[in-house]
Each structure stands twice: as structure tokens, then as C-alpha cells.
Amino acid sequence: MIREYKPEDLNSVMTIWLQGNLQAHDFIDPEFFKQNYDLVKMLIPMSTLYVQDLGGIKGFIGLTENYISGLFVDQNYRHQGVGEALVNKAKQRHNELLVHVYKKNTAAIDFYVAQNFDIVSESINEETNEPELLMRCHVEHNVKIGKCAL
């Protein structure tokens, strides 16, 4: 079940955040994520968060308006549709989604391409000095228009 984030979810979300970053970004010094842990913990509640709750938090997506500020899935629940469900939740709320992905994180790039994201540009992340891609998905919402009698 995907639901809105609650304050009591914070520790589970942060555990998934740290483990996910350490696993997906082995090209970045692990100390970078450990040093940013407290800052992220403070900022998380300022984003719009949705969690996949399957008798415990198995993944989450953080949104700052239409920008995906984070998408993380517990390693034991990857490749089971959790990430796709979370992205679809975001797609229900926005006409366009944007996300930055490290160029070396090919699994994430492949995931977003499968979710109909396109690569828009490439830049260097100022904090890590690593190349990253800006990806965008245009979302078409089907709106049913009823017939009106004049």
C-alpha cells in the first residue's frame, strides 16, 4: 500500500536512504552519505513523501514539487514493482517529473528509461564532482469529458 509519509516513518526511511545510497553509489566515498545523514534527516519532512508500506516501509519517493528528490527501495524488495509503483504515484500528481541520476548509476538510468523518462542534459554534481544526468518524463493524464446536452 502506498501512503503518505508519517513522522514515525522517519527512521525506516533514513535506513533505506543510507543503505540505498551506499549500495547504488559505490563510486562515491561512503563518508559523503554518512556526513549528510543528519541534514537529510532534517530535510526529509520538508518534501512530499510517499512510502510503500507492506507491513513495514519497503521504499519511498520524495518529491519537491515535480522533482524527484529521492527514490529508494529496500534491497530485499527491488525488482518487485515497488519503485515503479512509487513513480506511478508521483505521475498521478504531476504532468512532468524531473530527476537527477549519477551517470555511473546505470541501474537507475535503466529503471527511469523503463518508466518513460528521457535524458535531457548532463552536468557535474557540485558536491561529489561526479557526472549526472537530468531526466524528464512528460505525463499524459487521460481526462474523460462527459457529453453535455444543450
Rank of each mutant, 00 (worst) to 15 (best):
F33R: 06
Q80Y: 07
H141S: 10
Y67C: 03
I28P: 07
R3T: 13
L133S: 08
L98G: 01
I145F: 10
L133K: 00
E127V: 01
E31S: 13
P131N: 09
L71F: 11
F60N: 06
I28C: 06
D110W: 01
I145S: 09
V99W: 00
A90W: 07
H138C: 07
D110G: 13
Q52N: 15
S123H: 09
P7A: 04
K147L: 07
T128P: 12
Q115H: 01
A107E: 14
H138P: 05
H100V: 00
E8Q: 13
N105H: 03
Q115P: 13
I68Q: 05
I16M: 03
V120I: 15
T128V: 03
K91W: 02
L22W: 06
F117S: 04
H25D: 12
G55D: 14
G146Q: 03
L39T: 14
Y50Q: 02
I57N: 03
G55Y: 12
V73L: 08
H79V: 09
E31I: 07
K58P: 02
G59M: 06
L71D: 11
K89M: 10
A90L: 05
P7Y: 07
I68C: 06
T48W: 01
L134Q: 06
D118W: 00
I145T: 14
C148Y: 08
K147G: 07
L39D: 15
F32R: 01
Q80P: 11
F33Q: 05
N129V: 00
N76A: 15
E140H: 06
L63H: 03
P45N: 05
Y77T: 09
N36M: 04
A85W: 00
P131F: 10
L150D: 08
E122D: 11
G59E: 09
Q80H: 10
E126A: 08
L134Y: 02
N66C: 11
V13D: 01
N36I: 06
Y102I: 10
L18V: 11
G55L: 11
V40I: 15
L39H: 12
S69Q: 07
V120C: 05
E31Q: 12
G20N: 13
L150R: 05
L54W: 09
A108H: 03
A85Q: 13
Y102D: 11
D26H: 15
G81T: 14
S12K: 10
G70T: 08
H94T: 09
R93T: 02
F60I: 02
H138N: 13
N129S: 14
A114D: 13
E132I: 12
E127I: 03
Y102V: 13
H94L: 01
L54Y: 02
I2T: 11
L133V: 15
S121M: 10
M14Q: 09
R93W: 00
V120K: 04
C137T: 07
I28Y: 02
H79A: 14
C148V: 09
I61A: 03
M1K: 08
F27D: 06
G55S: 15
V139E: 02
V73D: 09
C148I: 14
N88T: 10
R3A: 11
Q19S: 13
A90K: 02
Y37N: 07
G70P: 05
L63R: 00
L10C: 02
V73Q: 01
S47V: 09
A114G: 14
L71A: 09
Q35G: 11
A114C: 01
L150Y: 03
G59W: 00
I124Q: 04
I68W: 03
G146C: 04
R93K: 10
T106Y: 05
S12P: 07
Y37W: 01
N66K: 13
D29C: 12
L134R: 02
Q92P: 01
